[in-house]
Design a protein around this nucleic acid. Structure first.
Lengths: 198, 198
DNA sequence: GTCTATAGCAAGATAGAC
DNA sequence: GTCTATCTTGCTATAGAC
């Protein structure tokens, strides 16, 4: 692996762990083993390196969200994505960036974050729309709104888990969201078809 | 107002705006107008000042949450707290701290955050329990879980809003949560009593 | 309690040789 | 492309007088 790739990979890790403002070029060099000269050859400023790392982190995240776009029962896909295995105490490598003052005030650094969330939102909306069409969700629910609600449950779940240093609140938050979705099945629907009742 | 109070107030503001790691003692002095000597007289280290500021921010937040504990219709209280006016683009002054590496790795600084969230959670649980008892929510919903879900909707809503630099996603997220709560009224319940249908 | 002066060290580069 | 040396600025204090 070349110096350039090692720099980007290391910066990606550090931005997930510590954010942008609190990660120094020095740390990147030490962890990656790339020298000063090489670093500034490939990336004239810390910000340039951060932008490359951020785009890499976004690219890491999007494939998972495309799980929502798959075929098969829409509500099952929604449930699968919601309950997907995630490291609650590490948080979201993209969502985290919104809390970094130097990122949120820099339109160029914030742009990939906004774009990533917009794409994930679109996938949520499509899946929720299908679920309504399939009669799995009441048709007076708004898929656009609900998509934001469910994304917020995940992003906020990380916040709660980190505060308590315990993944429990994250798991509770998403399980509670799923409970609500199930309770929002159209009235009169035969729910003896539910798969996992206790 | 004395120097000490001015320092704490200024640090509180800066920690909300920029977090802990990215706020310097220098900025605090300049914005507060308190001199170097006074600052280190009252607070031997930046961390000591941050702890006082954090406790102040927590104290600011808790009264609002006690709205959930009030009397009157439980679901109405839940709705009022959820839809309370909030500055989505500023985020939560307490939740924000969980994303600051220097806070999340410091048990002493994280403790007030954890305690605050635990108290708010307890208020949510109590209100949700009452709503179930009053027949406003299905009794197969778990108030503990749901409390985490609704807290996460708010915390995550801020993340979405900041990413898009638009309060819309925050408002969508909480409106969607409210839609789900209403859809989770016990089956067969007469909902012609709903107050705000379009 | 408040002031000014000073200090040690890290951040974030830049310069110029190889 | 990579190396070492150097630079400026800001962070986080400490010292000691008033």
């Amino acid at each position: 692996m070349g110096s350039r790739e090692r720099l980007v990979e290391t910066m990606s890790e550090l931005m997930w762990e510590r954010g942008y403002a609190d990660t120094s070029p020095r740390e990147v060099r030490q962890r990656s083993g790339v020298g000063q000269g090489s670093m500034y050859h490939h990336f004239p400023t810390k910000r340039d390196l951060a932008l490359a790392a951020l785009e890499r982190n976004v690219a890491d995240l999007l494939p998972a969200a495309s799980e929502l776009d798959g075929r098969g029962d829409p509500l099952a896909r929604i449930e699968a994505y919601l309950m997907r295995s995630r490291d609650a105490l590490k948080g979201c490598k993209v969502g985290r960036m919104t809390q970094d003052p130097q990122v949120r005030e820099d339109p160029v650094l914030l742009a990939p974050v906004a774009a990533a969330f917009a794409r994930v939102h679109a996938s949520w909306v499509a899946a929720l729309r299908e679920a309504v069409a399939a009669g799995e969700l009441r048709d007076d629910l708004d898929p656009e709104r609900l998509a934001h609600t469910l994304m917020a449950v995940l992003q906020g779940g990380y916040v709660l888990a980190i505060a308590q240093q315990d993944p429990g609140p994250f798991d509770d938050a998403r399980a509670g969201a799923l409970d609500l979705l199930r309770a929002a099945a159209p009235p009169g629907r035969d729910d003896t078809t539910q798969t996992d009742r206790k």
